Computed example of a mutant assay.
Amino acid sequence: MIIMDRLYNEAVKKGPICVGLDTTLKFLPKYLLDKDWSDGEKITEFNKKIIDATEDLAAAYKVQIACYESLGLDGMKAYSETVKYARSKGIVVIGDVKRGDISSTGDQYAKGHFTGDFEVDIMTVNAYMGEDAVSPYYQYIKENNKGIFILQRTSNPSAVDLQNLEVGADTIYEIMGDKIEAWGSAFRGENGFSAIGSVVGLTRPDEFEAIRARCPHTFFLVPGYGAQGGTGEDIANILKKSRCAVVNSSRGLITGHQKAGCEDEGFAEHIRKATLAMQEDILKWL
């Protein structure tokens, strides 16, 4: 079973929820901030409590490495401990690292995130340098059951500046989708999806629906839910046709305790409630 089959099966069983652990100190409850620990230790404890509270709801966890890199070695230790802890639960972990380089540099990125202290199951990749930025990961997809999500149509407003430019009859993001389908053709699993997936935002659901129809073998990581405006109904209209995606929410979930005014050790229960509400908001439309 390839990694994308695992993710697909979890998304069908639990619901298509990806909990984003894009954790910074401003999200921590006061009781943790007041502890005589390093910043990395505080973030690790916060993340572990969230994982414990949501492991039965999350099809995957996405960990944004920039939040940890900014704290130096202490932060990178927190990143390592977070991904190891989530993977120990048997849940798919996505390293949101957006690497995008070629040749020997790409080889080192693949080794750095698919083995060792920072090992994840799937990593995000920027392939706007072409297949040379993707091929370093093929070995790990084949031999280590890893996967990648390639940026295709992102959720940020200025994505239209480049991704929506037309080349002949197609937009650049449509051409990228065709490439992702082609690159992934050798890595398809039992559910028909490739271990090479795509990142497509939920902020333009009409575009997403057209992408899904054009890329039938691509599994999607979908940002843009909640804080960026995407709704459960938006994604459900796509999932009714194909259970082809997991939907990420980061600050919309991990600030659940702040919205409830909770600053004590019970914070994780509020994050669980926010995750349940997201699950319900999507599944009620299916």
Rank of each mutant, 00 (worst) to 15 (best):
P157W: 00
P157Y: 10
S158D: 15
S158W: 04
S158V: 05
S158F: 07
S158L: 06
A159N: 08
A159Q: 08
A159S: 15
A159R: 00
V160K: 14
D161T: 06
D161I: 01
D161P: 07
L162V: 15
L162E: 05
L162C: 06
Q163R: 00
Q163P: 09
N164H: 11
N164P: 00
N164T: 07
L165I: 12
L165R: 13
E166C: 10
V167R: 04
V167A: 13
V167D: 02
V167N: 08
G168R: 05
G168K: 05
A169G: 10
A169W: 02
A169Q: 13
D170Q: 13
D170H: 13
T171Y: 11
T171F: 06
I172W: 01
I172G: 08
Y173L: 08
E174S: 06
I175W: 06
I175R: 06
I175L: 15
I175A: 07
M176N: 05
M176H: 07
M176E: 09
M176L: 11
M176T: 11
G177I: 05
G177R: 02
G177H: 07
G177Y: 09
G177L: 10
D178K: 12
D178C: 00
K179Q: 12
I180K: 01
E181G: 03
E181A: 13
E181Q: 13
E181F: 06
E181R: 04
E181K: 03
A182Q: 14
A182D: 15
A182S: 15
A182G: 06
A182R: 14
W183E: 02
W183C: 02
W183H: 04
W183L: 02
W183M: 03
G184V: 11
G184K: 02
G184A: 05
A186Q: 15
A186L: 10
A186I: 01
A186F: 11
F187T: 01
F187L: 01
F187A: 02
F187I: 00
R188C: 13
R188F: 01
G189K: 05
G189Y: 07
G189F: 12
E190T: 14
E190V: 09
E190L: 11
E190G: 14
N191A: 09
G192C: 10
G192S: 09
G192Y: 10
G192A: 11
F193Q: 03
F193N: 03
F193T: 02
A195Q: 14
G197I: 00
G197W: 00
G197R: 02
G197V: 00
S198P: 04
S198W: 09
